[in-house]
Each structure stands twice: as C-alpha cells, then as structure tokens.
Design a protein around this nucleic acid. Structure first.
Lengths: 127, 127
DNA sequence: TGTCAACCTAGAGGAATGTCAAAGCAAGAC
DNA sequence: GTCTTGCTTTGACATTCCTCTAGGTTGACA
C-alpha cells in the first residue's frame, strides 16, 4: 500500500531524533535533500499548511476529514488530494474508523524539519 | 530591486523573533499560511534546499555564485533561476560586488519557519 | 439485502514549474 | 575604446501541480 518506493537511505523520516545537523551548520548532502525536499514541498501550499496545522494541533491528536473539509472553500476531492500529498510526504497518517477517516500528525518528521531549519539563537554576527 | 509587492500584513519575514506560535499548538490562520507557504515551497526542491544550505552554512556568511554553480549538474541560468526563487521567497539576499554576485542567508525567516514547525520535545503520548 | 453517507480514485483542463539555449547587461583587463 | 568574463533575463518546451466533475469503495443501518 505504501506507494513511496523512494530509497530512504540512512534517513528515517519516522525517527523522533533529528536525522541531520542544521542546514546552516553544514551543507546538506544531495541524498538528504532529495528525501526532505518533498516534505517542504508538501508544506508549500497554503491549504496544506493549514491542513497540517489543523491536524497537528488537534486536541485528541487526530481530526476527522469531516471536520477538515468544511473549513475550506474547496470540494471534497480537492481536500482529499491535498491530504494524500501530506500522507505521501510522510507528514500525516490516516486511519479509517467506522464511517469516518481520521488523520493524525507524525511529530517525528516535523521535528526533523524544524531541526534542519534551526539557527543560532543570537544573530549578533553581522549587521 | 525588491520585486515582492506581497502585502505582508502583520507578518514580518525579516523579523528575528518568531511571528507565530508553532503549527502544532494552534491552527495557522489563512493569511499566515499564504505568506509562509511560499517559503516552504522554495525549500521544496532538492537543488534549492542544497543551495540554501550552502549559503546559510558559509563561513564568511556569504557565497559567490561562482562557487555554487559548479556544485550541480545544471547550467548557470538554471542555478540563477533557483537563486531568484530563494530571493523572492525572502530566504536570501544578493549583492553584486565587482564582477561577482554574493548571496547571504536571512536568518530571521529561517528562524520563523523553524519556530512554526517546532514540536514538543518529548512525544511519550502514544506508541 | 438495499439504501444512504463519507471518503477516495480517475480523468481532464488550465496554470505553474524546471530546464535549457540564446541574448543582454555589468565589471574588469588590455 | 574594445574584448573577455560572469551572471541574469528572456523565450520556449516538457513536466508537474491544482482544481474540478464523475464514478467507485467502504461501512452503517433499517
């Protein structure tokens, strides 16, 4: 069922620990970039960024699609398409429970992306 | 020279302080998503992710384009195009000094993106 | 079993993106 | 002043993406 036959190499997107040093600390290798770029790309759409936020900030840790769809001026299939993009990027997980489908965030990869973007707290270097 | 006439509203991409609470803490408003999604989109390409990393991790704080181009199997104009994308997303700044053009990272927006993605350190909730 | 609701998949059309070759502009060398 | 080098811009083409309508699949309930 997993459509992603991308060779993950040494990078485990499910791991909770950061996979790589910050982007600003050492040059990101090509293989790492190929694996992580799709995750950023998935967040590169305003609708998906909001979907991701709604899912990740859910109190119960999960959200029903029936709660996501009415929050946008888009049709059901379009929302479904965006959710599929987030799923294939490894950012969320879906589970059908009875009639409804619930989405849940994967904090591991989110943590890795944040770690990759992290910068020294105090700029004070130039300017 | 700044081509971005996007209404930044209350979100200042140049600010050093995070503009918004983490994505997983509270739902990202639509206006915030519209402003920040292009930055993620710009990082959503493996070449640009590597370019961003090379620029941000430069020892002198800046990199000459002449050092960036030979690092990829792409033509000069293509690298220039990707750099323009990073520039328009507000992630880097360019400055011509003599014959060469130097690129420099903007740590402010990088810090904001990292803050938006930040998650609680200890999962320990499920799994 | 039949019917209904919720969600996903398939296919199509228009827009945006990635890449290159060719041309243009700016700065230094002779 | 003219030539050479370095980078960007322009134009073109193939690919990918976003959105929709139409149809399919799964589960609940009478």
């Amino acid at each position: 069922m997993s459509k992603q036959d991308v060779p993950l190499a040494v990078i485990d997107l499910n791991a909770d620990a950061p996979c790589c040093p910050p982007l600003a600390q050492r040059r990101v290798p090509a293989e790492t970039a190929v694996v992580l770029a799709p995750a950023f790309k998935a967040l590169g759409d305003p609708v998906r960024l909001q979907l991701m936020s709604m899912i990740a900030s859910a109190e119960d840790g999960e959200v029903c699609v029936c709660d996501l769809t009415p929050a946008f001026d888009l049709t059901g299939p379009t929302i479904s398409h965006h959710l599929k993009t987030l799923r294939e990027a490894g950012l969320v997980d879906a589970e059908r429970r009875g009639t409804w489908v619930y989405y849940r965030a994967r904090p591991g990869i989110l943590r890795q992306l944040a770690a990759l973007l992290s910068v020294e707290p105090a700029p004070s270097s130039q300017a």
